[in-house]
């Protein structure tokens, strides 16, 4: 078999064929829609939402920001759990410095909880 002058020429040809195979139907569909089908836009059709209900109101509304406190208190327990598990696993091999650092970290987190508790954020009534 005769080797082509540039061995990558076949790849380039195949690539062009593949791209053409993908683009030709798209171009044909576009041409058909562009030249034969009249466009029929409208208020409903150009609407953003598709649930059937007419959209009303403004998207730029205020949300109540009290929820962030619950988010932060949740974070206290969340972060504590993440760090307590490896802390407990390697507890016997820890140095005194690491132990003290961990206790300080825990106290910092618990302090936030105590603060929220004393401010009354944990009572729902």
């Amino acid at each position: 078999m005769q080797t082509p002058e540039n061995p990558y020429l076949v790849l380039v040809l195949l690539m062009a064929a593949a791209v053409g195979f993908a683009l030709t139907p798209l171009a044909a569909a576009w041409a058909w829609a562009h030249f034969f089908s009249p466009q029929k836009p409208g208020n409903d059709k150009n609407d953003t939402y598709e649930c059937g209900l007419a959209s009303k109101g403004d998207a730029w509304i205020h949300f109540r920001s009290e929820y962030y406190l619950y988010g932060i208190i949740f974070l206290v327990f969340d972060v504590e759990t993440i760090f307590l598990l490896p802390f407990a696993v390697s507890f016997t091999g820890l140095t005194v410095g690491a132990f003290v650092a961990m206790i300080i970290f825990l106290v910092l987190l618990v302090e936030g909880l105590v603060w929220a508790w004393r401010k009354g954020f944990l009572s729902w009534t």
Binding site: G42, D44, K45, D47, E50, G52, L53, A54
Partner: peptide, 11 residues
């Protein structure tokens, strides 16, 4: 009205 609006949104 929702049915008609959905119909309007169909191409």
């Amino acid at each position: 009205p929702l049915v008609v609006r959905l119909y309007n949104q169909m191409p």
